[in-house]
Every structure is written in structure tokens, then in C-alpha cells.
Design a protein around this nucleic acid. Structure first.
Lengths: 335, 335
DNA sequence: TTAATGAGCCAAAACGTTTTGGAGAAATAC
DNA sequence: GTATTTCTCCAAAACGTTTTGGCTCATTAA
């Protein structure tokens, strides 16, 4: 039923080849012919069949992203901003964005990646939520599938990525807090194998050290990047004999969990106790009192990642770029 | 480089046909042969090339969803829950989910839909954010492309959809508020052409009428479903001579904007003035005081929509199902 | 005048599947 | 003993592109 390139060719009394080459901008077709072809294609509403093109060209004009969905009802707005960025940039570059969700464990992830790689569904991947050692990096490198990532793993592989200087930002935030008189500063960790955890936690420790404060284990709580996790971590931190006067969190979501725990104790965030997150989500600006956070431009990072990926798809000989971004500390009120 | 069906066939001294049919479960291949084929395929890590399959079968095993992204930095968590639902259900049904963003205007949307329809990128669509009259419904119906939607338009077309009884829920919430003594109840509208706006607004008016209260124009404010919009709407509502004692909002995001405006006036939400949203987003549960909202199971709705779409893809003769969902009023504290 | 170049076009071969319409052998029916 | 059915398997034709390697005709160079 749909109109094919053959229909266009027939109508113009041209060969399929010529129509194809005219539309693709080859210079071995007369300018006048090209115009006729373009006009006819437009008029007949001809759109090339993607499957056929992909089969022949051996590429999909599609990039893939696997959303790490921990729970059924997952809701970290970080990812909606990230996906929006991917989608917008992909759209304006005329490639498609294929999305799947997988809980962040190796088996479930592998299923998706393998399906897409082997089935040639995508030309490359955008990675996220990196582990210090990440099988995806090894796997994609071995399969020679291009990819880019947010945050860099320790794997001995060359690839393009964007890094956010969590170390520096957290370190500086700690120093600022110390300046304001805080001595008991707690940290709510994420899962230990995550790059962001290692990075931000190191910043925390280095900040304390530079300020001449000994880090103490009772001010460190584990969490899982969720609101729930932050809530439980805060309960633990608040129940010790000499509770912290400030709590730094691995991300904004966790910080909101801390907010809730703090309030349940009858304390007011950022007056009685200082709370900070990391991400700079839009919703932090709606919180009251406004959450202190370290703002990374998630949307722009996502767009930039797509650009980098497309670049390495087109010119595979280019050296891998490594971009470092300095996030911005947002302290709307003070403690 | 990647292993094709031909490689598998060669290795087993079978024809390509037999391998294909063995893997697809046809019964004209001996059980013993089938087992050998499956084993070999597994061992050789054979995955069918999707483009080839799609070209031959004339379908994509992919469904499409176009995210309405109003602004560059879009962040309605409604959509992350929705996308997560789509992704999960698609994944477990072994079809892929293609995503694009487009600001909700006809030209930009058309580009994407046309590209996917004509290019055979997707077998069907999930629609969302419906206008009362929606060109997408007309267009897809005309092109005979299957689709399902959340909310039903007025277009004279038969299609499967899920409806949420916003009318009934808002109506009941109004009645409850009146029971609690509220007489000046405001409503923050969304864009007038949206189905949810017409539906929820009608519920608001009907609730007031049933309670014997005359709706008044000064208690109606326009907005655009964003935080910003809610903020401005609330500023307007709070500056009139006899301001409302309760503000109902078209959605949660808007309600958070109202929160902020209320606080800037030195008032405390849900003590001095009652505020309610609609959606039941997870973040409402972290707000303080917790936002009153009307909870619709966004994640489950999304999954259900995918199921319905796949059903109508496989059995195109089935009658279109129309599901009605009753959302739940969440009033954690009281005013 | 012939040879070489270039401009514009095209036939046919891929790409990797699925499907169609049998074929051959064995089993069953007559 | 032949005819029919059943069970396995397969060759070849699609699906709609892009690409390869020409071919023809006109123009320019020798």
C-alpha cells in the first residue's frame, strides 16, 4: 500500500537507482532531474522504508538507552530530564531513540544490550549510572559498538565520556559548611560500586581532611539513591548521641528522604539542620525551604552525549573526547 | 561479522528455511531437528537481524510514543512514570519502544508521526495528552495505524483507550471541601483544548453546583500544566479582595507552583489555605505538608495501554476496549 | 579523425530474513 | 501392489533499499 521508491521511479520514467541517488544527493544526477525527483517524492509522500535502508546500509540510524529502573514505580526526575535531553537531540539530528528499562543487574541488562547489539537495532549506546567496573564498557568495546557515557569507569578502555567534577564540588561544599561553623557533617552514600559514589564520597573526605576534621564512621550512612533510602539513612544518623548539624547526600532524591525524616523529628530543614543534595533537579527549586544542591546540567549533558555519540559514529577515526563539567553549588538560603 | 541464519544452517547442514521455521515454532520440522537448531543458535549467539525480519514481515515489533516536551528543561514526573510503565511492559512483551519528543504543536508533531508511519518504524502508537479534537486520532485512523490513548477525544473514531474519571473525582473532592466548610474554592485550569481540562473542570463546576454554590469567574485562573503556570495563577487568585480558602489544580505540578506562591505570602499550605493537585505523583508524598491529590495509577495505566495496543495489533478484528478508571482522592492531613 | 574524458543514467547484485509451493521418503490406506 | 496421506525438509521468491560497475552519448583533447 505505501508508496515505494519504485513507484516514484515508474512515475518519472527513471530507474530506481537514479531516484535513490537523486534523493541522497549524489552528483552523478543532473540537477534538473534531481528537482523533478524531489518534487515527485514530496508530492507522492514518499518516505524511504527504514527497514530496507537499514538492511542495506547496515546501520539503524537509531541510538539506544537503557533506563535503570530499580523499582516498579520508579520516579527519579533525573532520568526524565536526561531522557528529554536525549530525545530532543536525537530528534534534531534525525536519528531515533530506542529505550528500554532494566533493573541494574547484570543478567537483566545483558538481555537488552545483547538483543539490540546482535539484532542491529541500534548503532550505538548512551550509558549512564556507571559502576566503577562496568561490564557494559567491556562488552561494547569487545563488540566494537560505539558508546558514550556520563561518568568514566576504571575499565582500561578508551571511550568518549562526560565527567562531572563531583569530587571538587562536594569538597568545596564541605569547606563552605565548615566555614559556617559546622563540624559534624554527615554523608549519605549511594551503592558503593557506583562511580558517582566513589567520586563524591572522596570529595567529602578530602574536604573534611583539608578542614582538619577527622571523618568518623558514625556519620556515614548507606543508601540506595532513593527517597526511601535517604529517609532510613537519616533516621539512623539522627539517632546517634551527637547527631550531625549538616547532612550531605549522594543525590537530590535521597536528600528529600532526609528532609522527611528530619521533619518527623520536629526539626526544620536548613534551620535546625543543614541538608544538601546533588543533581540540581528542577523540583529542588520548589521545595521549601529550598534544598541546597549541586547543580549539574542534566538536560544539556544528555544532548551533548548524543552529539558526541553521533560524531564517533560518523568519524570513527577521531580521538575520543573527554569533557569535564564543573557543577554549581546552589545555596539559596543559608543555614 | 555477526552470525546470520545462514551460518547456523551451514553448520547444521540444513537449509535456511528449516532453521527459520524451527526457531519460529512451526510444526513441520522434526522435534529432534528443532532441538539441534535451538542448541546451535544459542551456542553461536545467533540473534535474528531485526531489519531483515521487519522488511520481510512488514512489521517492526516496535511501538512509538511521542513525549510532549513543552520546554527545553521539561520535568513533569508524570511522564517519567508513564515512560517507565511503557518501557517495562514493552520489554516484557518483547517489543521495543521508540521515543521522540515534540512540543505539542501540530507541525512539529506531524513530522515525527509521519516519519514513523511512512518509514514503518513502528507498528502502533500510544497517545497521551489528548486534545478535545486531536489530529493524531484522525490521521492514524485514516492511515489505519493502530493506536491506543489515555483519555478519549471527541473525534468520531473508534479506538481503544483508558479513561480516568476526573469528572467524578474532582466533583467529589469539591463536595468534601464544602463539607469541611470551604465556600470559596478556586480552580487552576490547564490549556482549554485538553481533554483533562474539560473533564476536570466540568467536575469542579458540577461539584459546586451540587453544593449550591455559584461558580464565579474570579476564582478561575488559567495555567499551562507547569510549576511556573501554577505559581502565576496563584498570585492572581491570592490578590483578589476575597481570596479563596481552597485551590484545586489541574495537576500536581501546578499545585506545587501554587504552594510556592502561597508560601511567599507568608501562608502555610493546608493550614491557612487548602491546595489540591491531580496525578498522585510520587513526589507529592515527599512534600510538606503533603499535597492533597487525586491519585491515578500512571505506571499501571501505561502498562495496560501497551497491553491493549499489542492486543489490537495481534487480533485486529477484536472490538475496541474502553477502560474506565476511578482515581483515588488522597487527603493525608486535613485543612 | 580518433582517443580520451565526463555527464547522466541504469541493470543487477546485494543486505538477512520469512513465506510459498512444492519434493522426496516413509507410512498408511485401499 | 498401487494410491494416498503424512512427515520432513528445501529452493526460490519476495520485502525495499543502496551500491557497484558499467553503458551511452556528447564533448573535449590529441
Amino acid at each position: 500500500m505505501p508508496v515505494t521508491i519504485r513507484d516514484v521511479a515508474r512515475k518519472l520514467n527513471l530507474s530506481v537507482t537514479t531516484v535513490s541517488r537523486a534523493l541522497d544527493g549524489y552528483d552523478d544526477v543532473a540537477e534538473e532531474t534531481r528537482q523533478r525527483v524531489i518534487a515527485a517524492a514530496l508530492e507522492m509522500e514518499y518516505v524511504p522504508n527504514r527497514a530496507a535502508r537499514q538492511l542495506r546500509r547496515q546501520r539503524a540510524d537509531t541510538i539506544g538507552y537503557v533506563l535503570p529502573a530499580h523499582e516498579p514505580r520508579f520516579a527519579d526526575p533525573f532520568f526524565s530530564e536526561f531522557v528529554a535531553g536525549l530525545g530532543d537531540e536525537a530528534g534534531s539530528s534525525n536519528v531515533d531513540l530506542l529505550i528500554s528499562t532494566a533493573s541494574p543487574n547484570e543478567e537483566e541488562e545483558q538481555l537488552v544490550y545483547q538483543r539490540w547489539v546482535h539484532g542491529h537495532k541500534v548503532d550505538g549506546f548512551v550509558l549512564n549510572h556507571m559502576r566503577l567496573r562496568d561490564w557494559r564498557v567491556i562488552y561494547l568495546d569487545r563488540k566494537e559498538v560505539p558508546f558514550v557515557s556520563l561518568e568514566r569507569t576504571l575499565d582500561p578502555v578508551e571511550y568518549a565520556c562526560i565527567e562531572v567534577d563531583g569530587f571538587g564540588a562536594v569538597r568545596e561544599l564541605v569547606l563552605r559548611l565548615v566555614e559556617m561553623g559546622h563540624r559534624r557533617i554527615a554523608f549519605v552514600c549511594g551503592p558503593p560500586h557506583l562511580v558517582i559514589q566513589a567520586d563524591r564520597y572522596a570529595g567529602y573526605r578530602d574536604g573534611l581532611r583539608s578542614a582538619g576534621i577527622m571523618p568518623t564512621l558514625e556519620l556515614i550512612a548507606e543508601s540506595d539513591l532513593t527517597h526511601q533510602g535517604g529517609y532510613h539513612a537519616a533516621q539512623q544518623l539522627l539517632s546517634i548521641s551527637d547527631p550531625p548539624s549538616a547532612i550531605l547526600c549522594i543525590n537530590d532524591l535521597t536528600a528529600f528522604g532526609v528532609y522527611q525524616a528530619v521533619r518527623e523529628r520536629g526539626l526544620q530543614p536548613n534551620r535546625d539542620i543543614c541538608i544538601a543534595g546533588f543533581d540540581g533537579l528542577e523540583i529542588t527549586r520548589w521545595s521549601h525551604p529550598e534544598l541546597i544542591t549541586i547543580d549539574q546540567p542534566v538536560y544539556d549533558i544528555a544532548r551533548q552525549l548524543v552529539k558526541m555519540l553521533l560524531m564517533s559514529l560518523n568519524e570513527s577515526d577521531k580521538p575520543y573526547s573527554r569533557v569535564m563539567i564543573k557543577p554549581k553549588i546552589m545555596m539559596p538560603g543559608c543555614c
